[in-house]
Simulated scan of single mutants.
Amino acid sequence: MSQQNLWKDKKGPRPRHGQLVLGELPAGLRLSVPEAQALHRAMEERLGAVVLILTDNRRRMVSARRVGQRIEIRAHHMFVGCASEVVDALATLAQRAPGVEAARACIRAYIAQNRDTIRFDVDEERLQALGEHHDLQAMLDRWRARFPVEALNDIVITWGRYGRGRRSIRFGSFDFDRRLIRIHPVLDQAWVPDYFVEFVVYHELLHALFPPRQLANRRVVHTRSFREMEERFPRYAEAMAWEQRNLPRLLER
């Protein structure tokens, strides 16, 4: 169904009483205001009154809700200057019109193509990959050599910081925006085996190869392909058993 048919019950030009909001964007961001205004006009041509809030949200690229007679759309600034088919997809998604699944696919493809706009430069001087007992960079390099794919070339790694919580612990994390792996410093101890630290690095590296998938109303981080590859770690069973035995001791730190 075309966007024109969605408005076949409307006569004359669509009402425009919306607003373009740029106040949530970070200071110093280079953005073409005329192009932002053009995106707002294009959305109102398709939807009527629209409050378009451009954001720098790195987790949720697009969201929409109806507020009275207007539709409020929050969208990452990467959509400024996008092609008309992407605008059509945003409009379809905003009003949950027929073809919403195809619209989501179009938007996901656009985000993937423009992911560089949501990455942050990593201050390499602040990275610390060489610990007192374990060398994270050496581990990363070994596995990157085994997976010679372009998607891993820009990944960097560092030891993280101690958190406040003691009831649980997250051994590693992968920041999709910064392409950064952080490893919990509690693992940088002499009694923690090298193979376990390397397994954590391997696990986080797999996130770059098998990114999360959106299924219905839930986001799956550890997909079936991810889990299958994770179990191919040479000492997987040993690493799992070691974690189970030593988790209480790690939580004491």
Rank of each mutant, 00 (worst) to 15 (best):
P13V: 05
Q19V: 10
Q19P: 01
L20G: 06
L25F: 04
A27R: 13
A27M: 13
L29C: 03
L31T: 05
S32W: 07
Q37I: 01
A38H: 05
A42F: 03
L52D: 03
L52E: 01
L54G: 02
R59Q: 14
M61R: 06
V62M: 09
R66V: 09
V67P: 05
E72G: 03
H77Y: 15
G81C: 07
G81F: 01
S84H: 15
A89E: 06
A89H: 03
T92P: 01
T92Y: 04
L93Q: 05
Q95F: 15
A102D: 11
I107C: 09
N114C: 04
T117G: 06
I118K: 10
I118C: 09
E124K: 13
E125K: 11
R126D: 10
L127M: 08
Q128E: 13
L130Y: 06
E132M: 14
D135W: 06
L136P: 00
L140K: 03
V149H: 11
N153L: 14
D154A: 12
I157K: 00
T158A: 07
R167K: 15
G172P: 02
F174N: 05
R179G: 07
I181A: 02
I181N: 00
V186I: 10
L187E: 01
E198F: 01
V200S: 00
L206G: 03
A208S: 08
A208C: 06
F210G: 01
R219C: 13
H222A: 08
T223R: 05
R224M: 10
E230L: 03
R232A: 08
R235C: 04
E238F: 00
A239K: 00
A241V: 05
P248L: 09
R253F: 15
